Computed example of a mutant assay.
Amino acid sequence: MKRTALLCFFLLATGAAGAQQKTSGNPVFPGWYADPEGIIFDRQYWIFPTYSAPYGKQVFFDAFSSPDLVHWTKHARILDTSAVKWAKRAMWAPSVIKKDKKYYLFFGANDIQHDSIPGGIGVAVADRPQGPYRDLLGKPLVDKFHNGAQPIDQFVFRDADGQHYLIYGGWRHCNIARLKPDFTGFEPFPDGSVFREITPDQYVEGPFMFRRGGKYYFMWSEGGWTGPNYAVAYAIADSPMGPFRRIGRVLQQDPSIANGAGHHSVMHDEKRDLWYIVYHRRPNTEKDANSRETCIERMYFDEDGHIRPVVITREGVPASTLR
């Protein structure tokens, strides 16, 4: 009896009882992380975020995986500047996609302010989602401003026909471009253009796209990333090229919980048709702009296919194991 009592006490003291946790909680893992991309690979949930710190310290990416949205494993430094010789700082907003048994990580680096500064959007490749990743090109994939879009906040969208698009842009402009099958460059559109602007009203940064019911949902962040007006809005169109007419906001701060909610991504459990929005926010206790945490909520649609406003919580989402 004494040994049993001691064992119970040990389990409680070491937190083993936490294995019964039923919700993810928000934030979903400790540390300051922002711009999270959530995606499902091989019956595991993955989140690839920006390490939220001063630009000079943003020289690596960590990743996190979970079997159930509740228990997360950290994979440290899946890519850093030692593997990308042209990247010096401000490594931002990873977007990861699987193709032909390889994993491709698209990222921004150096926060270039004009075309004469080296940097932009790069791409790295690995054999596993947790890396290690290696620079695919040895140079940026996009290293200049096109249509006024700063080359940051990249997202890779795979359409139903297998075509991959790079959607990106800061400074209130967003471009879409058709990627080559090997991701080493771009294929022009029929009119000969490479970068086509699809900027909707009030767009600032952080684009994301998904397809549902034959429609293309385009989402983005608007407002200032350091301010309370940071939020996520969306539009719906019949083509990935739009036109995208703003419908409204779906994610924004709740002053009683946190502020600066934005720069999101979406995960879809197709077998159970469960939708999740992954985003960052700033706790009310924090004043540093870089004190951002990664959170997750359920996302719902109404009978017309519109996205219902997301309620941000401290509880997060219920545990859910992929089938």
Rank of each mutant, 00 (worst) to 15 (best):
T81H: 09
S116Y: 09
G316K: 08
K98E: 03
V311P: 01
R172T: 11
E303W: 03
H71L: 02
H306Q: 14
F157L: 10
D115R: 10
M299L: 15
T50N: 09
G213M: 11
G131C: 14
N284H: 13
I39N: 04
M1C: 13
K287R: 12
R211H: 07
A87H: 07
G162M: 10
F9M: 14
K101E: 13
P181D: 08
F301E: 07
S82P: 01
F218R: 06
I296Y: 04
A87R: 01
V125N: 12
I78H: 04
F157S: 05
R77E: 09
D288H: 06
F195K: 00
F210L: 14
L12Q: 10
Y165C: 10
L12W: 13
K144H: 14
R281A: 02
H146P: 02
E197G: 09
E37I: 08
R245E: 14
S221N: 08
H71E: 05
A237L: 05
T226N: 07
G131D: 08
F155Q: 09
N290P: 00
R134L: 15
W86T: 07
G248R: 05
Q253I: 04
F61Y: 15
H164Y: 15
R3C: 14
Y234I: 07
I247G: 00
D42K: 14
R308N: 13
P318N: 15
Y279C: 07
A289M: 11
Q253T: 00
I39L: 10
R134N: 09
G56W: 09
N175P: 01
S24H: 03
P207L: 03
F10A: 11
Y276Q: 10
P118I: 06
A17W: 12
